[in-house]
Design a protein around this nucleic acid. Structure first.
Length: 571
RNA sequence: GGACUCGUAGCCUAGCCUGGAUAGGGCGUCGGACUUCUAAUCCGAAAGUCGCAGGUUCGAAUCCUGCCGGGUCCGCCA
């Protein structure tokens, strides 16, 4: 099967534009505005400079010169643009036959020369003293969908999690439980139970500043390996992790490996000392070890070991980088961590570089989630809780399902509500550019109408319903010329772009491109739906339209799969 | 003081990497469309100095510089 995509078009044009490389052409190729019934456009401005001719003339000459290959239907010179139309038959056939592989057709058809990588993705790396909140949800959905995308594109993915399970904040929850917990077992999800004591600590601290000292004393005991303290720490950590695991399961997340700060926080010092002995780092007069980063990296200098000989947080991340390399022999290591830690990762990568650890590290940062009232504050309990929001959105979805289908079984209602609710939540988060901050407005944020997950699912279900109703088997043996309605042409055109979108998304880690693409596609589908009847007296037309909508369905499925959203046959 | 980032209709947002055809959507507002494949839908209308000012360019929301405004970071905390 011949691959038909932007690259194929660029390769074809290259036969006539030998002064440019295929890659140059591919970068130049753009998508014409909606109302122009051509698949791709090649703007001739750049060429005009070299050729010293008007772009219009160049377009015209190209049009004259080019002999249409089998996969192209037409080309036109439209002002300074050379517009190119791919044959619908090829697009639809390609989608129908490749099915779920359509988004990775180059990989599937073995024409990609790109080397596939082993990639470690670390997320969401929570603290183990409180439940996950909306910020973690953003993190988890980004990490998960990026993993899905990279896996889809043939990379080997290792998802890992680093638990920040020690330190003063952990001891604060422990202290509050010790004082006011009456040794009780959790009467709710473990992470929530422990989180309540973290909030309690915050409350009590306002009246009694001595608590701070007591928490530090507990930390000292923990570090000294005091039996009772360590036992309490283990017990409470387990509660929290049990709670987290339920949330992960709910969101479909699992990890190849979980790292614990308690196992790592003392490590890394050897690496630093080794670096010191090699003259990579410097020892200050007071004994602290420092990395000089100003000149080479334009960063502030960073202390790596304190004057008292103890390690800094960053040393464990240095150690962990080596550890991950040993564990997974990765080609690339991605950290999904919020933008407040940009500086931390600049330091980390610079220091690793100094050490000669020349690996491909990448910090995928994203904007923080805040509330209309400002930042979320875990210690004051001012947060949007992850479990709560999941439950709320599913319960809202349940009401919507019930409103429409009061007669179906409650098990079926619940199943649909779960899938639809999660789609609403996931899509709501993933449709935005991750770089931007996110203000969560509880009352108006989660919707099922407009640019939402359910909107996409709805298209899928509508298509399923038509396919079920039609008496025909779907086949590529149709007359594509019958698909000449404006809405059909728009739809076919949009279907062409999925592989390009996925490539770009893979290259830039911009998952939202996929969500945005699905919205465009579904808007076109719904518009088509309202003006074109599929089931028809005209059987040839019905068969043609059936293939078209099947292809839309295939593409929706690919996109939603990457976003971690399920589809429904009925909704 | 230094570094990063965002600024697009009342609100939210895509497009910015790689400059190119009339700046796309959604929410909300107003007006229409369900005896026809699912109205979680569709069609139409009003709503924009793309923060401001320069520059580069045949061409700037997009690139560069400066400024203004929001957010973040700059610890021998994690």
């Amino acid at each position: 099967m011949k691959v038909i995509d932007k690259t194929a078009v660029a390769q074809f044009l290259n036969e006539y534009l030998s002064q440019l490389t295929v890659q140059d052409i591919e970068v130049l190729i753009e998508i014409p505005p909606t109302e122009i019934d051509y698949t791709y456009a090649f703007p001739c401005f750049r060429l005009a400079k070299v050729e010293k001719k008007a772009p219009k003339i160049i377009a015209k000459e190209l049009k004259k010169q080019i002999k249409l290959p089998d996969f192209l239907e037409d080309i036109e010179a439209n002002g300074p643009y050379l517009n190119i139309k791919v044959k619908a038959k090829y697009i639809l056939k390609q989608i129908f036959e490749l099915n779920e592989d359509y988004g990775r057709l180059r990989l599937k058809l073995g024409v990609s020369d790109e080397k596939k990588k082993r990639i470690v993705i670390e997320y969401p790396s929570p603290n183990t003293n409180k439940p996950l909140h909306f910020g973690h949800v953003r993190n988890m959905l980004l990490g998960k969908s990026l993993s899905n995308l990279l896996k889809y594109m043939g990379h080997t993915i290792f998802q890992v999690n680093l638990y920040n399970n020690r330190g003063i904040h952990i001891c604060q929850s422990m202290l509050a439980y010790k004082k006011w917990g009456n040794n009780e077992k959790p009467n709710k999800k473990g992470d929530h139970f422990v989180g309540d004591y973290y909030v309690k600590y915050g409350e009590k601290l306002k009246q009694d500043k001595e608590l701070e000292k007591e928490a530090y004393e507990l930390l000292r005991l923990w570090e000294a390996g005091d039996k009772a303290t360590v036992a309490l720490w283990k017990k409470m950590n387990k509660w929290v992790l049990d709670g987290f695991n339920k949330t992960y399961e709910k969101l479909g997340i699992s990890f190849e490996k979980e790292y614990f700060e308690s196992d790592l926080y003392l490590k890394g010092k050897e690496i630093i000392l080794d670096g010191l002995s090699k003259g990579i780092f410097e020892k200050l007069e007071n004994g602290a070890i420092i990395a000089r980063l100003k000149e080479k990296y334009n960063l502030e200098d960073k202390i790596l070991v304190r004057s008292d000989g103890t390690s800094i947080y960053i040393t464990q991340d240095i150690y962990l980088a080596y550890r991950k390399k040993a564990d997974f022999d990765y080609d690339r290591s991605i950290y999904v961590v919020g933008d407040p830690q940009i500086q931390h990762f600049k330091w980390l990568f610079a220091i690793l570089d100094m050490l000669g650890f020349e690996e491909d590290n990448y910090h995928l940062s994203y904007g923080m989630v805040s509330l209309p009232s400002g930042k979320m504050k875990s210690r004051e309990g001012i947060v949007v809780d992850a479990d709560d929001i999941i439950e709320e959105v599913e319960s809202l979805a349940f009401q919507e399902v019930e409103k429409r289908y009061p007669y179906i079984s409650s098990i079926e209602k619940k199943k649909r509500a779960e899938i639809i609710g999660q789609a609403a939540l996931k899509f709501y988060i993933l449709k935005y550019n991750p770089i931007k901050g996110f203000v969560f407005k509880p009352t108006e944020s989660i919707s099922f109408e407009g640019e939402t997950g359910p909107y996409i699912q709805y298209c899928y279900a509508r298509i399923a319903s038509i396919i079920k109703k039609s008496e025909f088997e779907i086949s590529t043996n149709i007359n594509c010329d019958l698909l000449k309605h404006e809405k059909e042409k728009f739809l076919i055109k949009e279907l062409t772009y999925l592989p390009d979108i996925i490539d770009l998304s893979e290259k830039t880690y911009n998952i939202h491109l996929i969500a945005q693409y699905l919205l465009s596609l579904c808007q076109l589908f719904n518009s088509f739906y309202s003006s074109c009847q599929v089931i028809s007296e005209d059987k040839e037309l019905e068969r043609a339209r059936l293939l078209l909508i099947k292809c839309v369905q295939v593409v929706i499925k690919i996109g939603l799969n990457i976003l971690g959203i399920e589809t429904l046959e009925k909704m």
